[in-house]
Amino acid sequence: MLIKTENLWKIYEVGAEKVHAVQGISLEVEKGEYLAIMGPSGSGKSTLMNLIGCLDTPTRGKYFLNGQLVSQLTDDELARIRSKEIGFVFQTFNLLPRATALHNVELPLIYNGTPSAERIRRAKDALKMVDLEDRMTHRPNELSGGQRQRVALARALSNNPSIILADEPTGNLDTATGSEIMQLFGRLHSQGNTLIVITHEAEVARYADRIIHIRDGKIEKEERLTKQG
């Protein structure tokens, strides 16, 4: 089992008020799975993504990633896990504006201490996987939205993570470009990558094997989709 959470809670204190963003979520994700987490805004899906992505720790409950209990780790230990196990794709791409595409993709490898020659080789490979090998020296402002998201995807792939975690990956893209990106996700999944997509759009969630619907911090329902083709 790649991901196993047991009764996860996340409670924020906003002033005197307590916000129960995640309320006792238990879920399991297997290696090689393509999962969508769906819910309207305010449903707690972003908080759940932060927990799964090891950006945050739960108030209560346990989270095992690759069999390792990660719910009680310190900030730096979580950073270590992120640099090895998780690749993020964000709605707003979040590329470094002054760095080239290649350098953006190299970044996770810098932080996990990959030697220079191997780092460049792996970054180039990752860019090849998203069909951007001819845009390596371009900066984000010289790339289209779809190309930027592909650079972000290459960055997520470069450190060969256990999970690719995408938060509204098509939210800032037009429909055509968005479906291109989703097809790319499908290709990466077929190559054996584990994908988790967080979205509020049924269109986007439809590409996954399984959809978990979240509402008010709880799992509302779970549906399994039969593979097409």
């Binding site: 730096d76 950073a79 992120r82 993020f88 979040n94 970044l107 932080y111 450190n159």
Partner: peptide
């Protein structure tokens, strides 16, 4: 701030 956030999300530790 945003750049720092990106770096941290993709694996930079405090000391990095």
């Amino acid at each position: 701030t945003r750049e720092i956030g990106i770096r941290k999300a993709i694996g930079a530790r405090r000391k990095d």
